[in-house]
């Protein structure tokens, strides 16, 4: 029905994913190469997007930066799903009992710590790094997925086909995996893309304040932080990484919206 957001979403996401993947085998220039002589070069045929204040190639920096952002966000969403979904399913299967209450209160507790605070605590003790960013964003993702899967599973548990499966003698674990999980996959995929885009924003924010990936690994947030003092001199250094974040997140959100419309059983239901 409404697939107009799916295509641009897929297009944008593909661009940044392929740039990130390509950066593992090839970048136009070496991003660790500091060449003060060629700094602040405007875009030309050698440096398509120009160079930064150390003479590094901006396009190469952005490609490796995409890799950092995407890697951190993917692992963080993975952590969230891996722990959150089973917790949510278990809570729903034991509705109203102790386990459910314990899991939900645990969720509330984690919600009291925004990802940034977790990152701050970890950094204060262990020092900054990309792994800290992953852990902080990942922990914050767990209750998101737990809550989502619990809510969706609860409404499924009321449906007669679950009762029928129980009447057929299947136990709750088996029902959770055979009947509940396949019916919430769409929801998880859609939420996954949304959390993915939030993860990219969060990673950029953490790197921006120095709590994320550390030099010499380029990351979009760090590039923005570096450009802050040079914004009057060379606005391009601030505009490019910001646009990269904006377009990636926009692409993921469009993809999420498009997927939701495409996968929504209410729109596809026949009869």
């Amino acid at each position: 029905m409404k697939l107009r957001s799916l295509l641009p979403g897929v297009f944008l996401v593909l661009i940044f994913f392929s740039a990130a993947l390509l950066s593992y085998i090839w970048t136009p220039f070496d991003v660790t190469l500091i060449d003060i002589k060629s700094r602040f070069q405007a875009p030309d045929t050698t440096h398509w997007l120009g160079t930064d204040h150390y003479g590094r190639d901006m396009l190469s920096m952005l490609m490796v930066g995409a890799r950092t952002s995407i890697a951190v966000a993917i692992v963080a969403v993975g952590i969230g799903m891996l722990f959150g979904v089973p917790l949510g399913l278990a809570a729903a299967a034991n509705r109203g009992r102790f386990l459910d209450e314990a899991i939900m209160r645990g969720n509330d507790l984690v919600f009291a710590f925004p990802a940034l605070l977790i990152a701050i605590m970890i950094t204060a003790v262990y020092g900054p790094g990309a792994v800290n960013a992953i852990i902080a964003i990942g922990i914050f993702n767990i209750p998101v997925f737990a809550r989502l899967s619990r809510g969706a599973a609860l409404s499924l548990w009321k449906r007669d086909f679950i009762l029928a499966a129980r009447a057929a003698g299947k136990n709750t674990t088996r029902i959770s995996f055979e009947h509940i999980l396949p019916n919430i996959t769409n929801l998880l995929i859609v939420q996954g893309t949304i959390q993915f885009s939030l993860g990219i924003l969060a990673e950029a924010g953490l790197s921006f304040v120095g709590l994320g990936a550390q030099p010499p690994i380029p990351s979009w947030g760090r590039m923005l932080a570096d450009s802050q003092t040079l914004i009057m001199l060379e606005p391009r250094l601030a505009l490019l990484p910001g646009l990269a974040i904006l377009l990636t997140v926009l692409g993921l959100n469009l993809l999420g919206d498009g997927l939701r419309d495409w996968l929504d059983p209410r729109l596809r239901r026949e009869r």
Partner: peptide, 18 residues
């Protein structure tokens, strides 16, 4: 709102300053 949701607020802040 699509744009607003996707924009990193600290970058937006830098643009406002600029």
């Amino acid at each position: 709102t699509q744009l607003g949701v996707a924009i990193p607020n600290f970058w937006f802040a830098m643009l406002l300053v600029l």
